[in-house]
Simulated assay, not measured.
Amino acid sequence: MSVPHDLMDGLERPSLIRGLSLFDWLWAALVLASAVGVYVEFNAALGMYQQAILAGATAALIGVGWYWKPMRALSLVIAGLSLFAILLYGNQYSAGESNFILVWWLSSPAAIAWMNGLFLTATVAYVLGLAVRGDALSERSLALGSWLTWAAVTMGFVALMVRWRESYLIAPDFGHIPVSNLFDVFVLFCVVTGLLYLYYETRYRQRALGALALLIISAAVAFLIYYAVAYHADKIEPLVPALKSYWMKIHVPANFIGYGSFAFSAMVGVAYLLRDRAERLHPDGRVVRRLPSLEMLDDIMYRYIALGFAFFTLATILGALWAAQAWGGYWSWDPKETWALIVWLNYAAWLHMRFSKGWRGRPLAVWSFVGLIVTTFCFLGVNIFLSGLHSYGKL
């Protein structure tokens, strides 16, 4: 098991621009050219704010591709498969019921089914990789889990891209970004959390945490399957009036980067508690050999909570601006808003105790897992048990 000597290895680089290669600039040119193509094709339908979102997304994709090289290949594969599916659809939504490739592979229902199966299989591979005795067999199983996770994330993003196009094929006034209901955002949660885990895996060159990270994704997949089967929630529905806004394109993704980061940090906290116990009871056991060190786990947990807190703060500010436009006020103490504030205060206190009081280790690991319970209620429980202005995904 390869462990970086420096916990900051690959995470902080003093001069990104000076270190850019020819391929980095070619990547930037490709993304920029694609954005210009989108602008030229859809300029008539893009208002000032949508143009700003397109520009921001372009800059973000270029920057992420520079900073994390695997994002380039992933983006190109997602774009290629999505465009291929869109070409197969043409202008007929019914093609999704007759074209063999769409029916079995690239329509949004098919791609989501592939995503679900791949995530569940990856979870099994990661768990076996952590549990089996032989180190060689363990590495092969963990590597398989990694490849399956990459494939699952790819199919999930393809599903979202194709579902976006499908909504316009049903009817032009149906068309919207697929982050508007509980089914859509569960798909988004799965792929965002999977991508955040894969970033950790490639940067720290560690795969053992996949056994825990994929468990939380598999729980989301299980709910997604149940929700689709029991409530036919996978159908594309028109937007309610309050959601017909450009704010949805930035508020919801920012929110789910926060949710995904908090979920992964909670699983890192669980890994910390498992390793801490194993070091005391079985210092030469498989858990100690395969999980990262306590110092590294503590550092990863902090980094992902800090990332999640930053994006959740941004999402909360964007949500307040959206609320002012949609409902005439920045804050209304709606149950979703109240619980979002509770989540924000929980992680603000977590970070405060780490910075100002020097807390480390077990207390913060336990707190991180408790934070996941609070966040889950905000994400899902409010929709099930409470009602309010944000009740777009009730069971």
Rank of each mutant, 00 (worst) to 15 (best):
P253N: 10
G37E: 05
L87R: 11
R203T: 09
D173N: 10
L120V: 10
F309N: 06
D298P: 09
L195N: 06
A73H: 04
F23P: 02
R72S: 11
V288E: 10
Q206A: 01
L76M: 14
I177W: 07
T123G: 08
V31N: 14
I317G: 04
W327I: 06
A271S: 09
A213F: 11
P14D: 11
Q92F: 06
A151E: 02
L83M: 13
G90C: 12
L30Q: 04
S146T: 13
L364M: 15
V36C: 08
S332R: 13
F174T: 00
A57L: 09
Q92L: 14
V179S: 02
W105T: 11
W322G: 03
L102R: 04
E295T: 15
G269V: 04
G371Y: 00
L291T: 10
K357P: 15
P178E: 01
R13N: 01
G10Y: 15
G388V: 00
L120Q: 05
S146V: 07
L389Q: 15
E97P: 01
L351F: 08
L273N: 03
V127H: 12
L182Q: 12
D9I: 09
A320T: 11
T202V: 15
I257H: 02
L22M: 07
A33G: 12
L46S: 01
V270I: 08
G63F: 08
M353H: 02
E139Y: 02
A152D: 03
Q51H: 01
L160G: 07
H352M: 13
R289H: 10
L102T: 03
G129W: 07
Y126A: 08
A278G: 06
A310E: 14
A263S: 11
A143T: 10
R163W: 15
A324F: 10
G381P: 08
T154L: 13
G358D: 09
F186E: 09
H282Y: 14
A220W: 03
L22R: 04
G388F: 00
L314N: 04
L76K: 12
T338V: 11
L307G: 08
L318K: 05
I342R: 11
L294Q: 03
S107E: 06
K244R: 10
S98T: 09
A233H: 04
G63V: 12
A220T: 08
W25I: 12
W367L: 11
G285Q: 12
L118Y: 10
E201I: 07
Y392G: 03
A254Q: 03
L142C: 01
V31C: 12
P335Q: 14
A233G: 14
N383G: 00
T58L: 05
T149N: 12
A219Y: 05
L364R: 13
I78F: 04
P335Y: 14
W150Q: 00
T316G: 02
G117L: 07
A266C: 05
K235Q: 05
L106T: 05
W27A: 08
